[in-house]
Nucleic acid binder design. Structure first.
Lengths: 247, 247
DNA sequence: GCAAAAGTGTTAGTTGTACACCCATGT
DNA sequence: ACATGGGTGTACAACTAACACTTTTGC
Protein backbone atom coordinates (compact mmCIF):
# COMPACT_ATOMS: atom_id res chain seq x y z
CA UNK A 1 0.00 0.00 0.00
CA UNK A 2 1.14 3.55 -0.62
CA UNK A 3 1.18 6.06 2.19
CA UNK A 4 -1.95 7.74 0.87
CA UNK A 5 -3.86 4.48 0.73
CA UNK A 6 -2.74 3.64 4.24
CA UNK A 7 -3.77 7.00 5.57
CA UNK A 8 -7.14 6.86 3.84
CA UNK A 9 -7.61 3.46 5.36
CA UNK A 10 -7.05 4.93 8.81
CA UNK A 11 -8.96 8.15 8.39
CA UNK A 12 -12.39 6.96 9.48
CA UNK A 13 -11.07 5.17 12.50
CA UNK A 14 -8.94 8.15 13.46
CA UNK A 15 -11.92 10.50 13.27
CA UNK A 16 -13.77 8.54 15.90
CA UNK A 17 -10.76 7.72 18.07
CA UNK A 18 -8.85 10.97 18.35
CA UNK A 19 -9.57 14.58 19.18
CA UNK A 20 -9.59 16.61 15.99
CA UNK A 21 -7.10 19.41 15.36
CA UNK A 22 -4.75 18.29 18.12
CA UNK A 23 -1.48 16.46 17.72
CA UNK A 24 1.54 15.76 19.87
CA UNK A 25 5.13 15.92 18.74
CA UNK A 26 8.00 14.54 20.76
CA UNK A 27 11.61 15.68 20.73
CA UNK A 28 13.53 12.72 22.10
CA UNK A 29 17.07 13.38 23.24
CA UNK A 30 19.65 10.67 23.75
CA UNK A 31 23.35 10.77 24.55
CA UNK A 32 25.64 8.40 22.73
CA UNK A 33 29.39 8.41 22.61
CA UNK A 34 29.77 12.04 23.62
CA UNK A 35 27.08 13.26 21.22
CA UNK A 36 23.48 14.40 21.67
CA UNK A 37 21.17 12.56 19.32
CA UNK A 38 17.54 13.03 18.41
CA UNK A 39 15.05 10.33 17.51
CA UNK A 40 13.43 10.99 14.14
CA UNK A 41 11.07 9.14 11.83
CA UNK A 42 10.47 9.24 8.10
CA UNK A 43 7.13 8.49 6.49
CA UNK A 44 6.94 6.10 3.62
CA UNK A 45 7.45 7.96 0.38
CA UNK A 46 8.33 11.25 2.02
CA UNK A 47 11.70 12.92 1.72
CA UNK A 48 11.87 14.75 5.03
CA UNK A 49 12.46 13.41 8.49
CA UNK A 50 10.02 14.41 11.17
CA UNK A 51 9.53 14.25 14.91
CA UNK A 52 7.72 11.19 16.23
CA UNK A 53 4.18 12.22 16.96
CA UNK A 54 0.61 11.14 17.30
CA UNK A 55 -2.84 12.15 18.47
CA UNK A 56 -4.84 12.34 21.66
CA UNK A 57 -7.57 9.81 22.26
CA UNK A 58 -11.00 11.14 23.10
CA UNK A 59 -10.77 10.30 26.77
CA UNK A 60 -7.06 10.47 27.37
CA UNK A 61 -4.95 13.01 29.28
CA UNK A 62 -2.50 14.70 26.94
CA UNK A 63 0.41 13.65 29.16
CA UNK A 64 -0.72 10.05 28.86
CA UNK A 65 -0.97 10.41 25.10
CA UNK A 66 2.61 11.64 24.96
CA UNK A 67 3.76 8.66 27.03
CA UNK A 68 1.84 6.26 24.79
CA UNK A 69 3.30 7.77 21.63
CA UNK A 70 6.82 7.70 22.99
CA UNK A 71 6.65 4.19 24.32
CA UNK A 72 5.49 2.94 20.95
CA UNK A 73 8.51 4.51 19.26
CA UNK A 74 11.20 3.63 21.79
CA UNK A 75 10.09 0.53 23.61
CA UNK A 76 11.22 2.24 26.79
CA UNK A 77 8.84 2.77 29.64
CA UNK A 78 9.37 5.39 32.33
CA UNK A 79 10.70 7.93 29.89
CA UNK A 80 11.17 11.42 31.26
CA UNK A 81 8.73 13.63 29.40
CA UNK A 82 7.99 17.30 29.69
CA UNK A 83 5.67 19.55 27.78
CA UNK A 84 7.48 22.67 26.61
CA UNK A 85 5.33 24.60 24.11
CA UNK A 86 2.34 24.41 21.80
CA UNK A 87 2.57 25.26 18.13
CA UNK A 88 -0.45 26.62 16.34
CA UNK A 89 0.37 28.74 13.34
CA UNK A 90 -2.50 28.45 10.90
CA UNK A 91 -0.49 26.98 8.05
CA UNK A 92 1.96 24.87 10.00
CA UNK A 93 0.76 21.41 9.02
CA UNK A 94 -1.72 21.13 6.17
CA UNK A 95 0.76 21.70 3.37
CA UNK A 96 2.44 18.39 4.14
CA UNK A 97 -0.63 16.50 2.93
CA UNK A 98 -1.88 18.92 0.35
CA UNK A 99 -2.33 16.18 -2.26
CA UNK A 100 -5.05 14.54 -0.18
CA UNK A 101 -7.04 17.21 1.64
CA UNK A 102 -9.80 14.81 2.68
CA UNK A 103 -7.50 12.77 4.88
CA UNK A 104 -7.63 12.97 8.68
CA UNK A 105 -3.94 13.81 8.56
CA UNK A 106 -4.52 16.78 6.27
CA UNK A 107 -6.65 18.83 8.67
CA UNK A 108 -5.26 21.75 10.59
CA UNK A 109 -3.34 20.56 13.63
CA UNK A 110 -2.23 22.40 16.71
CA UNK A 111 0.67 20.48 18.10
CA UNK A 112 1.66 20.14 21.72
CA UNK A 113 5.42 19.73 22.02
CA UNK A 114 7.01 17.39 24.54
CA UNK A 115 10.66 16.74 25.00
CA UNK A 116 12.02 13.51 26.37
CA UNK A 117 15.35 12.43 27.76
CA UNK A 118 16.09 8.74 27.54
CA UNK A 119 18.93 6.35 28.09
CA UNK A 120 20.22 5.81 24.57
CA UNK A 121 21.15 2.23 25.27
CA UNK A 122 17.69 1.28 26.52
CA UNK A 123 15.96 2.39 23.34
CA UNK A 124 15.27 0.30 20.29
CA UNK A 125 13.81 2.67 17.70
CA UNK A 126 10.61 1.25 16.23
CA UNK A 127 9.13 2.48 12.96
CA UNK A 128 5.35 2.34 12.80
CA UNK A 129 3.41 1.13 9.77
CA UNK A 130 3.26 4.48 8.02
CA UNK A 131 6.98 5.10 8.48
CA UNK A 132 9.86 3.36 6.84
CA UNK A 133 12.49 4.63 9.23
CA UNK A 134 12.92 5.50 12.88
CA UNK A 135 16.48 6.40 13.79
CA UNK A 136 18.78 8.40 16.03
CA UNK A 137 20.34 11.35 14.23
CA UNK A 138 23.12 13.49 15.75
CA UNK A 139 21.92 16.92 16.83
CA UNK A 140 24.88 18.62 15.22
CA UNK A 141 24.21 17.27 11.73
CA UNK A 142 20.45 17.37 11.37
CA UNK A 143 18.84 17.73 7.96
CA UNK A 144 15.89 20.07 7.38
CA UNK A 145 12.79 18.52 8.91
CA UNK A 146 9.21 18.34 7.63
CA UNK A 147 6.71 21.11 8.35
CA UNK A 148 7.75 23.27 11.31
CA UNK A 149 9.54 20.44 13.06
CA UNK A 150 12.90 22.17 12.93
CA UNK A 151 11.35 25.07 14.84
CA UNK A 152 9.85 22.71 17.39
CA UNK A 153 13.16 20.97 17.88
CA UNK A 154 15.04 24.23 18.34
CA UNK A 155 12.56 25.37 20.93
CA UNK A 156 12.94 22.08 22.80
CA UNK A 157 16.71 22.41 22.82
CA UNK A 158 16.58 26.00 23.97
CA UNK A 159 14.18 25.06 26.74
CA UNK A 160 16.54 22.34 27.87
CA UNK A 161 19.47 24.73 27.83
CA UNK A 162 17.78 27.46 29.82
CA UNK A 163 16.46 24.94 32.34
CA UNK A 164 19.74 23.12 32.70
CA UNK A 165 19.74 23.68 36.47
CA UNK A 166 16.21 22.41 36.86
CA UNK A 167 16.20 19.39 34.57
CA UNK A 168 17.41 15.95 35.62
CA UNK A 169 19.68 15.72 32.62
CA UNK A 170 22.28 13.32 33.92
CA UNK A 171 19.81 10.98 35.53
CA UNK A 172 17.82 10.53 32.34
CA UNK A 173 20.40 10.73 29.59
CA UNK A 174 23.16 8.64 31.10
CA UNK A 175 23.12 4.91 31.68
CA UNK A 176 22.89 3.52 35.19
CA UNK A 177 26.66 3.56 35.52
CA UNK A 178 28.83 6.28 34.07
CA UNK A 179 32.12 8.08 34.57
CA UNK A 180 32.79 11.66 35.52
CA UNK A 181 34.26 12.55 32.12
CA UNK A 182 31.06 11.26 30.54
CA UNK A 183 28.93 13.40 32.81
CA UNK A 184 31.04 16.43 32.05
CA UNK A 185 30.87 15.84 28.29
CA UNK A 186 27.10 15.59 28.57
CA UNK A 187 26.84 19.01 30.17
CA UNK A 188 29.33 20.42 27.69
CA UNK A 189 27.26 19.09 24.80
CA UNK A 190 24.09 20.66 26.08
CA UNK A 191 25.64 23.98 27.01
CA UNK A 192 27.69 24.12 23.85
CA UNK A 193 30.94 25.02 25.59
CA UNK A 194 33.73 23.40 27.51
CA UNK A 195 33.83 23.41 31.28
CA UNK A 196 36.82 23.50 33.59
CA UNK A 197 37.40 19.98 34.81
CA UNK A 198 38.55 20.78 38.34
CA UNK A 199 35.68 23.16 38.98
CA UNK A 200 33.19 20.73 37.48
CA UNK A 201 34.49 18.02 39.78
CA UNK A 202 34.00 20.16 42.87
CA UNK A 203 30.54 21.33 41.86
CA UNK A 204 29.28 17.85 41.26
CA UNK A 205 30.83 16.53 44.43
CA UNK A 206 29.38 19.40 46.45
CA UNK A 207 25.92 18.43 45.24
CA UNK A 208 26.40 15.07 46.95
CA UNK A 209 24.32 13.16 44.43
CA UNK A 210 26.86 10.61 43.22
CA UNK A 211 27.72 7.19 44.52
CA UNK A 212 31.09 5.80 43.62
CA UNK A 213 31.00 2.19 42.57
CA UNK A 214 33.62 -0.36 43.57
CA UNK A 215 34.82 -1.26 40.12
CA UNK A 216 36.32 1.14 37.61
CA UNK A 217 35.47 0.86 33.92
CA UNK A 218 37.87 -1.58 32.38
CA UNK A 219 39.05 -2.20 28.88
CA UNK A 220 39.90 1.25 27.53
CA UNK A 221 43.37 2.56 27.04
CA UNK A 222 44.90 4.68 29.81
CA UNK A 223 43.74 4.82 33.37
CA UNK A 224 40.41 3.15 34.04
CA UNK A 225 37.99 5.89 35.16
CA UNK A 226 35.85 5.47 38.24
CA UNK A 227 32.28 4.41 37.72
CA UNK A 228 29.49 6.29 39.45
CA UNK A 229 25.75 6.03 39.69
CA UNK A 230 23.27 8.62 40.92
CA UNK A 231 21.74 8.44 44.36
CA UNK A 232 18.25 8.93 43.01
CA UNK A 233 16.78 10.21 46.26
CA UNK A 234 19.48 12.83 46.74
CA UNK A 235 19.44 13.63 43.03
CA UNK A 236 15.75 14.42 43.04
CA UNK A 237 16.02 16.45 46.21
CA UNK A 238 18.82 18.49 44.70
CA UNK A 239 16.95 19.22 41.47
CA UNK A 240 13.53 19.70 43.00
CA UNK A 241 14.01 23.44 43.32
CA UNK A 242 16.82 23.76 40.85
CA UNK A 243 20.48 23.51 41.68
CA UNK A 244 21.94 26.86 42.40
CA UNK A 245 24.65 27.20 39.85
CA UNK A 246 25.48 29.00 36.70
CA UNK A 247 27.86 26.55 35.08
CA UNK B 1 -31.92 35.07 28.22
CA UNK B 2 -30.34 32.60 30.59
CA UNK B 3 -26.76 31.50 30.09
CA UNK B 4 -27.87 28.15 28.71
CA UNK B 5 -30.14 29.77 26.15
CA UNK B 6 -27.39 32.13 25.14
CA UNK B 7 -24.89 29.33 24.73
CA UNK B 8 -27.31 27.21 22.78
CA UNK B 9 -27.93 30.19 20.56
CA UNK B 10 -24.20 30.39 19.83
CA UNK B 11 -23.44 26.73 19.54
CA UNK B 12 -24.09 26.28 15.84
CA UNK B 13 -22.16 29.37 14.91
CA UNK B 14 -19.29 28.35 17.15
CA UNK B 15 -19.08 24.92 15.56
CA UNK B 16 -18.44 26.41 12.15
CA UNK B 17 -16.23 29.28 13.33
CA UNK B 18 -13.84 27.73 15.80
CA UNK B 19 -11.54 24.74 15.99
CA UNK B 20 -13.13 22.09 18.15
CA UNK B 21 -11.55 20.89 21.39
CA UNK B 22 -9.20 23.87 21.64
CA UNK B 23 -9.55 26.85 23.91
CA UNK B 24 -7.32 29.63 25.12
CA UNK B 25 -7.17 30.95 28.67
CA UNK B 26 -5.42 34.16 29.61
CA UNK B 27 -3.89 35.07 32.94
CA UNK B 28 -3.73 38.84 32.88
CA UNK B 29 -1.50 40.48 35.46
CA UNK B 30 -1.77 44.12 36.42
CA UNK B 31 -0.08 46.20 39.12
CA UNK B 32 -2.15 48.66 41.07
CA UNK B 33 -1.26 50.51 44.19
CA UNK B 34 1.52 48.15 45.23
CA UNK B 35 -0.53 45.02 44.55
CA UNK B 36 -0.55 42.44 41.78
CA UNK B 37 -4.03 41.96 40.40
CA UNK B 38 -5.51 39.44 38.01
CA UNK B 39 -8.29 40.04 35.51
CA UNK B 40 -11.16 37.60 36.02
CA UNK B 41 -14.63 37.13 34.57
CA UNK B 42 -17.77 35.54 35.89
CA UNK B 43 -20.37 33.93 33.68
CA UNK B 44 -24.00 34.80 34.09
CA UNK B 45 -25.58 32.54 36.67
CA UNK B 46 -22.30 30.88 37.68
CA UNK B 47 -20.80 31.13 41.12
CA UNK B 48 -17.13 30.84 40.28
CA UNK B 49 -14.82 33.32 38.70
CA UNK B 50 -12.77 32.16 35.75
CA UNK B 51 -9.94 33.26 33.53
CA UNK B 52 -10.90 35.22 30.43
CA UNK B 53 -10.75 32.85 27.51
CA UNK B 54 -11.99 32.01 24.08
CA UNK B 55 -11.48 29.85 21.05
CA UNK B 56 -9.33 29.71 17.95
CA UNK B 57 -10.88 30.56 14.61
CA UNK B 58 -10.47 28.04 11.84
CA UNK B 59 -7.83 30.02 10.01
CA UNK B 60 -6.22 31.95 12.82
CA UNK B 61 -2.80 31.60 14.46
CA UNK B 62 -3.18 30.72 18.12
CA UNK B 63 -1.08 33.74 19.12
CA UNK B 64 -3.47 35.96 17.16
CA UNK B 65 -6.42 34.32 18.86
CA UNK B 66 -4.92 35.11 22.25
CA UNK B 67 -4.42 38.73 21.25
CA UNK B 68 -7.98 38.96 19.96
CA UNK B 69 -9.41 37.47 23.15
CA UNK B 70 -7.35 39.75 25.35
CA UNK B 71 -8.08 42.90 23.43
CA UNK B 72 -11.80 42.22 23.68
CA UNK B 73 -11.57 41.94 27.45
CA UNK B 74 -9.21 44.83 28.16
CA UNK B 75 -9.58 47.35 25.36
CA UNK B 76 -5.81 47.56 25.36
CA UNK B 77 -3.84 46.86 22.22
CA UNK B 78 -0.18 45.89 22.24
CA UNK B 79 -0.53 43.75 25.32
CA UNK B 80 2.49 41.66 26.20
CA UNK B 81 1.41 38.05 25.80
CA UNK B 82 3.29 34.84 26.26
CA UNK B 83 2.24 31.25 26.00
CA UNK B 84 3.33 29.28 29.05
CA UNK B 85 1.65 25.86 29.10
CA UNK B 86 -1.16 23.74 27.68
CA UNK B 87 -3.66 21.99 29.89
CA UNK B 88 -5.28 18.79 28.71
CA UNK B 89 -6.43 16.53 31.49
CA UNK B 90 -9.35 14.52 30.18
CA UNK B 91 -11.88 15.82 32.70
CA UNK B 92 -10.67 19.37 33.11
CA UNK B 93 -13.57 21.21 31.47
CA UNK B 94 -16.71 19.26 30.67
CA UNK B 95 -18.03 19.14 34.24
CA UNK B 96 -18.60 22.88 34.17
CA UNK B 97 -21.40 22.47 31.63
CA UNK B 98 -22.63 19.05 32.61
CA UNK B 99 -26.27 20.18 32.60
CA UNK B 100 -26.15 20.80 28.87
CA UNK B 101 -23.86 18.25 27.24
CA UNK B 102 -24.99 19.10 23.70
CA UNK B 103 -23.57 22.62 23.87
CA UNK B 104 -20.42 23.62 22.05
CA UNK B 105 -19.06 24.76 25.39
CA UNK B 106 -19.59 21.35 26.95
CA UNK B 107 -17.18 19.42 24.75
CA UNK B 108 -13.76 18.41 25.93
CA UNK B 109 -11.33 21.30 25.66
CA UNK B 110 -7.59 21.38 25.70
CA UNK B 111 -6.62 24.84 26.78
CA UNK B 112 -3.56 26.79 25.78
CA UNK B 113 -2.48 29.12 28.58
CA UNK B 114 -1.16 32.61 27.92
CA UNK B 115 -0.12 35.12 30.48
CA UNK B 116 -0.24 38.83 29.88
CA UNK B 117 1.26 41.83 31.62
CA UNK B 118 -0.59 45.08 31.09
CA UNK B 119 -0.60 48.63 32.38
CA UNK B 120 -3.40 48.56 34.92
CA UNK B 121 -4.40 52.11 34.17
CA UNK B 122 -4.77 51.52 30.43
CA UNK B 123 -7.27 48.72 30.89
CA UNK B 124 -11.01 49.05 31.09
CA UNK B 125 -12.33 45.57 31.91
CA UNK B 126 -15.12 44.61 29.52
CA UNK B 127 -17.56 41.82 30.27
CA UNK B 128 -18.80 39.95 27.22
CA UNK B 129 -22.41 38.98 26.66
CA UNK B 130 -22.21 35.65 28.47
CA UNK B 131 -20.50 37.19 31.51
CA UNK B 132 -21.96 39.52 34.06
CA UNK B 133 -18.63 40.61 35.48
CA UNK B 134 -15.10 41.30 34.39
CA UNK B 135 -12.92 42.68 37.18
CA UNK B 136 -9.46 42.99 38.65
CA UNK B 137 -9.01 40.83 41.74
CA UNK B 138 -5.96 41.03 43.98
CA UNK B 139 -3.65 38.04 43.62
CA UNK B 140 -3.32 37.67 47.37
CA UNK B 141 -7.04 37.26 48.02
CA UNK B 142 -8.30 35.17 45.15
CA UNK B 143 -11.34 32.94 45.56
CA UNK B 144 -11.43 29.40 44.20
CA UNK B 145 -11.80 29.56 40.43
CA UNK B 146 -13.91 27.47 38.06
CA UNK B 147 -12.61 24.21 36.57
CA UNK B 148 -8.81 23.98 36.73
CA UNK B 149 -8.32 27.72 36.42
CA UNK B 150 -6.63 28.00 39.82
CA UNK B 151 -4.04 25.53 38.60
CA UNK B 152 -3.55 27.46 35.39
CA UNK B 153 -3.14 30.70 37.29
CA UNK B 154 -0.59 29.20 39.68
CA UNK B 155 1.43 27.87 36.80
CA UNK B 156 1.42 31.30 35.15
CA UNK B 157 2.59 32.96 38.33
CA UNK B 158 5.34 30.41 38.87
CA UNK B 159 6.48 30.85 35.28
CA UNK B 160 6.67 34.59 35.79
CA UNK B 161 8.63 34.18 39.01
CA UNK B 162 11.19 31.78 37.59
CA UNK B 163 11.63 33.96 34.50
CA UNK B 164 11.90 37.20 36.41
CA UNK B 165 15.27 37.98 34.85
CA UNK B 166 14.00 37.31 31.34
CA UNK B 167 10.59 38.95 31.42
CA UNK B 168 10.05 42.66 30.76
CA UNK B 169 8.06 43.03 33.95
CA UNK B 170 8.61 46.68 34.67
CA UNK B 171 8.08 47.81 31.12
CA UNK B 172 4.71 46.10 30.83
CA UNK B 173 3.25 46.36 34.30
CA UNK B 174 4.15 49.93 35.15
CA UNK B 175 2.71 53.07 33.59
CA UNK B 176 4.82 55.20 31.30
CA UNK B 177 6.10 57.22 34.24
CA UNK B 178 6.85 55.70 37.61
CA UNK B 179 9.02 56.13 40.68
CA UNK B 180 11.81 53.95 41.98
CA UNK B 181 9.84 52.90 45.08
CA UNK B 182 7.06 51.74 42.76
CA UNK B 183 9.47 49.70 40.66
CA UNK B 184 10.94 48.14 43.78
CA UNK B 185 7.50 47.27 45.18
CA UNK B 186 6.63 45.62 41.87
CA UNK B 187 9.63 43.31 42.08
CA UNK B 188 8.95 42.65 45.74
CA UNK B 189 5.37 41.68 44.94
CA UNK B 190 6.40 39.24 42.28
CA UNK B 191 9.26 37.71 44.22
CA UNK B 192 7.26 37.60 47.41
CA UNK B 193 9.98 39.15 49.58
CA UNK B 194 11.44 42.51 50.43
CA UNK B 195 14.57 43.84 48.78
CA UNK B 196 17.22 46.10 50.20
CA UNK B 197 16.59 49.58 48.91
CA UNK B 198 20.17 50.73 48.48
CA UNK B 199 21.23 47.58 46.67
CA UNK B 200 18.13 47.69 44.48
CA UNK B 201 18.93 51.26 43.55
CA UNK B 202 22.44 50.37 42.47
CA UNK B 203 21.36 47.31 40.49
CA UNK B 204 18.76 49.19 38.54
CA UNK B 205 21.09 52.09 37.87
CA UNK B 206 23.85 49.72 36.75
CA UNK B 207 21.46 48.28 34.15
CA UNK B 208 21.28 51.73 32.58
CA UNK B 209 17.70 51.34 31.41
CA UNK B 210 16.06 54.28 33.19
CA UNK B 211 15.62 57.84 32.15
CA UNK B 212 15.05 60.40 34.85
CA UNK B 213 12.32 62.87 34.04
CA UNK B 214 12.53 66.54 34.86
CA UNK B 215 9.55 66.75 37.16
CA UNK B 216 9.05 64.79 40.37
CA UNK B 217 5.68 63.35 41.28
CA UNK B 218 3.76 66.00 43.11
CA UNK B 219 0.86 65.93 45.48
CA UNK B 220 1.77 63.26 48.03
CA UNK B 221 2.93 63.91 51.52
CA UNK B 222 6.66 63.97 52.18
CA UNK B 223 9.35 64.36 49.61
CA UNK B 224 8.21 64.09 46.03
CA UNK B 225 9.92 61.08 44.45
CA UNK B 226 11.68 61.35 41.11
CA UNK B 227 9.79 60.16 38.08
CA UNK B 228 11.45 57.81 35.64
CA UNK B 229 10.56 56.16 32.38
CA UNK B 230 12.24 53.24 30.65
CA UNK B 231 14.57 53.72 27.75
CA UNK B 232 12.80 51.10 25.67
CA UNK B 233 15.73 50.41 23.40
CA UNK B 234 18.15 49.87 26.26
CA UNK B 235 15.51 48.00 28.21
CA UNK B 236 14.95 45.49 25.46
CA UNK B 237 18.65 45.05 24.88
CA UNK B 238 19.18 44.36 28.57
CA UNK B 239 16.40 41.78 28.76
CA UNK B 240 17.01 40.16 25.40
CA UNK B 241 19.26 37.53 26.88
CA UNK B 242 18.13 37.92 30.46
CA UNK B 243 19.64 40.24 32.97
CA UNK B 244 22.32 38.55 34.97
CA UNK B 245 21.12 38.87 38.49
CA UNK B 246 19.68 36.83 41.28
CA UNK B 247 17.76 39.46 43.17
C1' DG C 1 10.26 68.70 62.51
C1' DC C 2 8.79 64.59 60.41
C1' DA C 3 8.89 61.12 57.16
C1' DA C 4 9.68 59.50 52.74
C1' DA C 5 12.99 59.58 48.99
C1' DA C 6 17.67 59.64 47.09
C1' DG C 7 22.31 58.67 46.95
C1' DT C 8 26.63 56.85 48.66
C1' DG C 9 30.03 54.31 51.65
C1' DT C 10 31.64 50.33 53.79
C1' DT C 11 32.57 45.72 55.04
C1' DA C 12 32.42 40.84 55.58
C1' DG C 13 31.43 36.85 53.32
C1' DT C 14 30.56 34.07 49.24
C1' DT C 15 31.21 32.63 44.39
C1' DG C 16 33.19 32.45 39.93
C1' DT C 17 37.16 31.55 37.14
C1' DA C 18 41.34 30.29 35.82
C1' DC C 19 45.51 27.95 36.63
C1' DA C 20 48.57 24.83 38.40
C1' DC C 21 50.25 20.97 40.70
C1' DC C 22 50.38 16.24 42.16
C1' DC C 23 49.15 11.39 42.13
C1' DA C 24 47.18 7.01 39.97
C1' DT C 25 47.04 3.69 36.50
C1' DG C 26 46.44 0.94 32.02
C1' DT C 27 48.90 0.10 27.83
C1' DA D 1 56.85 7.01 28.95
C1' DC D 2 52.54 8.75 27.99
C1' DA D 3 47.90 9.85 28.04
C1' DT D 4 43.93 9.98 30.60
C1' DG D 5 41.58 10.31 35.01
C1' DG D 6 41.25 11.91 39.92
C1' DG D 7 41.84 15.18 43.46
C1' DT D 8 43.32 19.48 45.66
C1' DG D 9 45.37 24.30 46.33
C1' DT D 10 45.32 28.93 45.49
C1' DA D 11 44.45 33.60 44.29
C1' DC D 12 42.14 37.30 42.22
C1' DA D 13 37.91 39.24 40.61
C1' DA D 14 33.26 39.83 41.11
C1' DC D 15 29.29 39.92 43.46
C1' DT D 16 25.91 39.55 47.61
C1' DA D 17 23.94 41.13 51.67
C1' DA D 18 23.38 43.92 55.32
C1' DC D 19 23.89 48.37 57.60
C1' DA D 20 24.55 52.93 58.14
C1' DC D 21 25.05 57.69 57.15
C1' DT D 22 23.84 61.80 54.70
C1' DT D 23 21.08 64.92 52.06
C1' DT D 24 16.78 66.48 49.94
C1' DT D 25 12.23 68.09 50.19
C1' DG D 26 6.92 68.43 50.72
C1' DC D 27 3.80 69.22 54.11
Amino acid sequence: MTLDELLKDRSEEAKSTYLSHISIDCVVFGFDNGTIKVLLVRMKGKRHWMLPGGFVENHEDIDDAAIRILTARTGADKVYLQQFATFGKKDRSQAFFKQSPALWHAQRFISIGYFAMVDFNQVIPVADDISDKCEWLPLQELPALAMDHSTILSKALKTLQTQVNYQPIGLNLLPQEFTLPELQKLYESILGRTLNRGNFYRKIMALDILEKLDEPRKGGAHKAPNLYSFNVKKYNEAFENGIYDRW
